[in-house]
Computed example of a mutant assay.
Amino acid sequence: MLAFVGAWLIPLVWVIGNAFLSKAMFSGSGGSWTFTLSNFERVWKAAPFGIYYGNTLLVTAAIFAVQLVTLTLAAYAFARIPFVGRQAVFMLFLVQIMVPPDVLIFSNYRTINALGLLDTKLGIMLPYFATSFGIFLLRQAFKQFPYELEEAARMEGSSTPGILLRIYVPLTRPIYLSFAIVSISYHWNDFLWPLIVTDSPDNRMLTVGLAMFAKSSEAGVQWTDVSTAVLIVAAPLLIGFLLFQRQFIGSFIHSGLKG
């Protein structure tokens, strides 16, 4: 395990070294082992990373916020509300898990184009507002709660939204945290769909902006600049994991589901 971790850390250490040491040190021109932040200042000014950060934060947060609503309502419906064809509809939802997202790119692109949402932030977000994985995860958790708990709440005069907010959501916080890790990391690192659906820097995501920066004539084969840009993009997720790694690991442990 230690050998595996060491092999995984090699590229990360190399990127950090390139980002914080002088360009001359890694270009073979005889630089010294001097800690510097000038690489970040130079790279930040070379491309509109501030705009990319704003776009990525907005898209990632908006997708997650809408997903919380849609997956909670859908999971409750599949777990607690009897209706004709419930199992068949749920199986159709599960089919989405088996279909790779790349297979749907062409049909999603045609839909976004027909709606006039190309090169917009809403166009990036729209295909991800519903998630079959999150619905499945939360439905399994909701099904474990005894019906008597909900019946007691209704006898006290609580409505269905009140039951969701006061009983189901608080008791499934580990599930929500587990899903948050998956959703936020996926959409923060998503590249192909934002690349296809956007053209202008005003709507460009961090991953696409990084690719454009790496291919630009200014960056060329300057690995120091490219590594610095990579660290700028990856830093929020790395810092978040280091700060909340116990909560992250605990959420996955406590989200183990039965049945």
Rank of each mutant, 00 (worst) to 15 (best):
G28R: 00
T131A: 15
L192D: 04
Y76K: 00
V89R: 02
A7D: 02
T224A: 10
E150H: 05
Q245E: 12
D202G: 10
Q140P: 06
P127D: 10
S158W: 05
G259M: 06
T60Y: 06
I16K: 00
G30Q: 01
A235L: 15
L242A: 15
F90H: 03
A77L: 08
W44S: 13
G220D: 08
S32G: 10
A211C: 02
A3D: 05
K258T: 15
F191Y: 14
E150F: 10
M91F: 14
S29L: 11
I239Y: 03
F78D: 04
I51H: 04
L122P: 05
T70A: 10
L171G: 03
N18M: 12
D190S: 14
V233S: 04
A7Q: 03
L164T: 09
M205D: 02
V99G: 01
P100M: 08
T56R: 03
I97F: 09
I232D: 03
D202H: 07
F213H: 03
T70Y: 06
P100W: 02
T111F: 14
S27P: 01
W14K: 00
K258N: 13
F106A: 14
I175R: 00
F20I: 14
V5R: 01
F145Y: 07
R204E: 14
A235Q: 02
L242C: 13
A130M: 11
K45A: 15
M125W: 02
L9T: 05
L242T: 11
L237G: 08
A114F: 12
G259Y: 03
G250P: 07
V89P: 01
V84L: 12
A47W: 05
S185K: 03
T228D: 04
F136I: 04
Y176P: 07
G28M: 06
F142H: 00
E148T: 14
E151T: 10
F213L: 08
F20M: 07
Y53T: 15
G259H: 03
S183G: 07
G31Y: 08
L237R: 01
L231Q: 04
S185I: 13
S27K: 02
T120W: 05
N18C: 13
A229D: 07
K143A: 15
V13Y: 10
L104H: 00
I135R: 00
I239C: 07
I175F: 11
F133D: 01
F244S: 05
M1P: 11
S251F: 09
Y186S: 15
L231C: 11
S132H: 02
P194N: 06
